[in-house]
């Protein structure tokens, strides 16, 4: 990639066939990735698509002779920034899907119109500009011994002030992020006794809140406990999950599972009964292996 022929192609007005193929293939993928970023309903998928697009862009940087930038793109952008995004997505709720239905009247049409006009104008502007000669980066990259050295030479001489200011900016951003997200506790935390007294005063829920999970079947925190009539009680799930709507209702499944379990135990008892009274059917032998497997799984679940 850093060979002499590569440098030469960087300087030409037309690129090598290899780069052309790479451009058309990866460019198509990049555009698809960008479109997916804005069209995916789940934020996680959007983030992944964007990461893909960024990696492709990193490849394009490399192809354009910006080796340092290409690496930084992968490391900083795809590695750090996109991870930051994913963290926040996790915080906000990874499973929540956005509705793509537009709520603002005319917003989508206006956006389409503006986007189309903007894009057409931008492309027209590029087409209008006289961009026929590409000098290539061969000379610039080799002047200080390499791309990174060249960048460093510029960064610490010509752009040193901007570099310093960027450092200040980063520190400010870090402090700002901390200030924004850090919640200062301003009063003493309540003791257990005080909390119990408050519960009595309010009179809504005297005993401790019920725990989530269906005993002997599910004990995940997003599964509400079942009331005696089999309906789920949302009280058992923590409020964050309740607000996100991330509650897995397994009451129906539990009932159906129960029914299936009873059916199976009936079958087993019936088989035992039938062997004594009616005799086995032709299908019992084929069913016995399945029954055994079922039984194994039931036992497994019961132990959980």
């Amino acid at each position: 990639m850093t060979g002499l022929s590569g440098l030469n192609t960087l300087a030409a007005t037309t690129t090598s066939t290899g780069e052309a193929v790479q451009f058309w293939v990866l460019g198509t993928v990049a555009v698809i990735g960008a479109l997916c970023t804005i069209l995916m309903r789940r934020a996680v998928h959007s983030a992944l698509c964007l990461a893909g697009t960024m990696i492709i862009l990193a490849v394009f940087y490399l192809a354009n002779g910006a080796y340092f930038l290409g690496v930084v793109q992968i490391v900083v952008y795809t590695g750090a920034i996109m991870m930051l995004f994913l963290f926040v997505v996790m915080l906000v709720g990874v499973t929540a899907a956005d509705s793509l239905k537009e709520t603002l009247k005319g917003q989508r049409w206006l956006a389409a119109l503006c986007g189309l006009g903007f894009g057409v104008l931008l492309i027209a502007g590029i087409g209008h500009a006289s961009l026929s000669t590409f000098n290539g980066l061969g000379a610039a990259n080799t002047a200080h011994g390499g791309n990174v050295e060249g960048l460093a030479a510029l960064l610490f001489t010509k752009y040193v002030f901007a570099f310093e200011i960027t450092g200040a900016l980063l520190i400010t951003a870090a402090v700002g992020a901390m200030v924004l997200t850090h919640k200062e506790r301003t009063e003493r935390s309540l003791t257990q006794r005080e909390m119990a007294e408050r519960r009595v005063r309010e009179g809504k829920q005297l005993p401790p809140l019920p725990a989530p999970g269906v005993y002997a079947r599910h004990n995940a925190v997003d599964i509400p406990g079942l009331l005696p009539d089999g309906t789920p009680s949302e009280l058992t799930v923590i409020s964050t999950l309740r607000e996100r709507g991330q509650i897995r209702d397994v009451s129906a499944k539990a009932l159906s599972d129960l029914k299936a379990l009873e059916q199976r135990s009936e079958d087993r008892l019936g088989r035992h009964g039938s062997t004594s009274s009616t005799g086995p059917a032709t299908g019992t032998t084929t069913g016995s292996t399945g029954d055994r497997a079922d039984r194994d799984r039931d036992e497994e679940e019961a132990t959980r």
Binding site: L110, C114, G117, F118, L121
Partner: peptide, 10 residues
């Protein structure tokens, strides 16, 4: 803003 930018470019 976006429309304004488009107009400016135009």
């Amino acid at each position: 803003m976006f429309g304004g930018t488009a107009v400016l470019i135009a």
